[in-house]
Design a protein around this nucleic acid. Structure first.
Lengths: 209, 209
DNA sequence: TTGTTAAGTTAACAGTGTTAAATTAACGGT
DNA sequence: ACCGTTAATTTAACACTGTTAACTTAACAA
């Protein structure tokens, strides 16, 4: 209630207060279901106060999305230390899937919805950086496996390979997130599905030992 | 404007008029972006007239969704005539992907968004029927390949196999639909991605010739 | 000529994201 | 000690959404 010239630190504090409240609500019920007024009420401010710090709801979502990308990359980063490149590649897929299924609503925003015009320059995630960009991490591993001659002969396009591996894991995760509660299909255990997909990647792309 | 007791045929006619208008708009811009008033205006009725024929927007979407499921199954049905079971399985994946990428907004509704409580009994699509249920078709093919002993030894759960194949193809399609316009990734050609995924399924699950 | 009833429309409600206008309080200069 | 200026915040309000209630209109049956 008391308005006064605030220091940058205080401004930043409120900013992250908003972000934290929004993240929690979004993660719990998805972005569509959460209202600006609700976010504001949760932190004891008026809804319009949010607009002093974020252009609109989309900007708020986008910023959270960016931090999620960083969180994913950070989670995957330690996996890059595994020595065996193939093993490392598999562990990366496993870690990715864990992230997706632990934070389904975040994953939804990140990879399952078309956010309009997400140009790389206005994003805070440094593209191509192996430390903060999950796709770059995957490409790195794929390149390593390729350099060691472990992929089957026909495969030469590492971008194509990386995108296919990504699609495979993403397929399991996104299907689980969207349709797990659908009685239509007699779903197998999700961990079994991930495991078989990993096995398929291995047998499908890697030379027989 | 002229209200009079209508025959069932006339009622049905208006029903499908609404459905057709809605389908076109939904397909063009997605369900979220299209408004009930807009649908109504497109067919020269008041927005509330729609509610005489559909409980709410969700019911309208769901009905369209059902016909899309039937359309998919119908498209895939002819593929089932291919004699070679493995070849048939691959063709099924190809046809599925074609459907997804030709009707991205329909595919979105069908497989990429959690419609609340889609219980099978109130749907018009007969579950398990090989003619009208695409998943049943896939399971049929997988079972056939299994019965002929063409999968690698370890694989015994045909449900798990079917779901993994589905996830693989779905992964390529849904990633394309959600993120194709994302400058983040240097995307390979979509047909190459589908092709490699098919190859991965083949090498990953089928016995070496 | 009436009711009655179905088909449709207009008016209205509650809720959304968002913006414009007011309010409040702290600061700097005189 | 006052007084603008200015930043932070709130209240009002707008344009829009899906949806429901209330009303209108026309055709049939008695």
């Amino acid at each position: 209630m008391p308005p006064k010239p605030k220091t940058d630190a205080e401004r930043q504090q409120l900013r992250t207060l908003i972000l934290d409240a929004a993240r929690e609500l979004f993660a719990a019920r998805g972005v569509e279901a959460v209202t600006m007024r609700e976010i504001a009420k949760n932190i004891g401010y008026s809804s319009t106060a949010i607009y002093l710090h974020f252009k609109d709801k989309e900007a708020l979502i986008r910023e959270l999305c960016d931090t999620d990308f960083l969180a994913l990359a950070s989670k995957l980063h330690r996996i890059l230390e595994i020595a065996n490149p193939v093993e490392r590649m598999m562990a990366l897929g496993q870690g990715y899937a864990e992230f997706a299924l632990t934070h389904p609503n975040h994953y939804r925003i990140m990879f399952m919805s078309q956010r309009p015009g997400c140009s790389p320059e206005d994003s805070k995630v440094p593209q191509g950086n192996a430390e903060h960009d999950a796709y770059a991490q995957l490409k790195l591993v794929v390149q390593d496996v390729y350099d060691k001659g472990l992929f089957i002969e026909e495969l030469t396009d590492t971008d194509l390979i990386a995108q296919t591996i990504w699609a495979a894991i993403h397929g399991v995760c996104s299907l689980e997130i969207s349709l797990a509660n659908d009685a239509w299909v007699n779903w197998s255990d999700i961990s079994a599905r991930i495991s078989l997909m990993q096995q398929m990647i291995l047998r499908g792309l890697i030379k027989a030992a």
